[in-house]
């Protein structure tokens, strides 16, 4: 017993000291870490639904949906937080929809692990082509030139799969949640 104590007291003391150190750091930083995580979502919502003053969080069919209203209480748009499978791992994105849920007002990918340099272009300007597309019928992914009137988006060269996965998630949102938005106003 004495031998055990002689050899291991330092480990135990260090264990306690380190645990306190970690707990201290956690209490200091956790608020900021959570704020960072929330901010990514906030920024995305602001990007896909322009010009709202307040938002309210709802749950529709298992998805988090943000009802965005202006100063006079008028609904200016909806932001749907959606996750679906991607090429490498899950893709999480926010889809902006018009007040009647019939038009897409924006798309922002907030979490993905797609291939750097190819698939991860979904994070950038590429997603802007979803803007103004019709949410009442499925979006079609084409290679090369697209026709917005036919609800088409053009795939990223070399990352057709990533483009497909994003389109699938968006179509799923517009099909399941789009029609239910008008009645929530």
């Amino acid at each position: 017993m004495r031998k055990f104590v002689a050899e291991s007291w330092l480990v135990l003391v260090l264990g306690v000291v380190f645990a306190c150190l970690l707990a201290g750091t956690q209490t200091q930083l956790s608020a900021k870490i959570q704020a960072n995580q929330a901010k990514a979502l906030e920024n995305a919502i602001a990007e896909v639904v322009p010009g709202f003053d307040e938002k309210e969080q709802l749950e529709i069919d298992g998805n988090r949906v943000f009802k965005c209203v202006d100063g006079s209480g008028q609904v200016v748009g909806w932001a749907v937080d959606a996750t679906g499978s991607g090429f490498i791992d899950k893709i999480r994105l926010v889809v902006g929809l018009s007040p009647d849920g019939a038009t897409i007002t924006g798309l922002k990918v907030i979490e993905d692990l797609e291939t750097p340099g190819l698939g991860n272009k979904i994070e950038g300007e590429w997603a802007d082509q979803y803007e103004t597309l019709d949410a009442t019928r499925p979006i079609v992914r084409v290679k090369g030139e697209r026709h917005a009137a036919d609800n088409e988006i053009s795939a990223i060269t070399g990352a057709t799969y990533s483009s497909d996965y994003v389109t699938d998630i968006v179509n799923d949102v517009t099909r399941r949640i789009g029609p239910k938005l008008a009645e929530q106003q």
């Binding site: 750091t25 956690q26 930083l29 956790s30 900021k32 870490i33 960072n36 995580q37 901010k39 990514a40």
Partner: peptide, 9 residues
């Protein structure tokens, strides 16, 4: 790790 997540998210 915590510091990075707090300051360089």
């Amino acid at each position: 790790d915590m510091a990075l997540r707090a300051y360089m998210f």
